[in-house]
């Protein structure tokens, strides 16, 4: 059975995590799916590690060190693409 998670769902889940657990509910920061975390100064190095830990725990995969890049993690949309890619890979491994 293919367990597909929609982009919008990932965006919503990750946004919720960042807002509550990293930004600690700060009301003066709004996140759109294309906002760059780097440019908005939303994450520091500890925040990135916490985000990675969340993704690994919540979606059930391991982030390799060389996958922790702005290309994969700098926006909600890029995270969604990254997560979907990892899940697809994981599913392919299971089927194989």
């Amino acid at each position: 059975m293919i367990n597909k998670i929609e982009t919008a769902d990932i965006v919503k889940e990750v946004e919720g995590y960042i807002t509550q657990s990293i930004l600690l509910g700060a009301s003066n920061v709004s996140l759109s799916p294309e906002d760059s975390f780097l440019q908005k100064g939303i994450l520091d190095s500890t925040g990135v590690l916490e985000l990675v830990a969340f993704l690994e725990g919540h979606y059930g995969f391991i982030c390799q060190d060389d996958e922790i890049t702005p290309e994969n993690l700098d926006t909600l949309n890029s995270i969604a693409t990254y997560v979907q890619g990892k899940l697809k890979l994981s599913l392919s491994s299971e089927i194989a």
Binding site: L38, L43, G47, T69, P70, L73
Partner: peptide, 8 residues
């Protein structure tokens, strides 16, 4: 300015 992604 991307040291939060040190490998990069």
């Amino acid at each position: 300015n991307r040291f939060i992604y040190p490998s990069s």
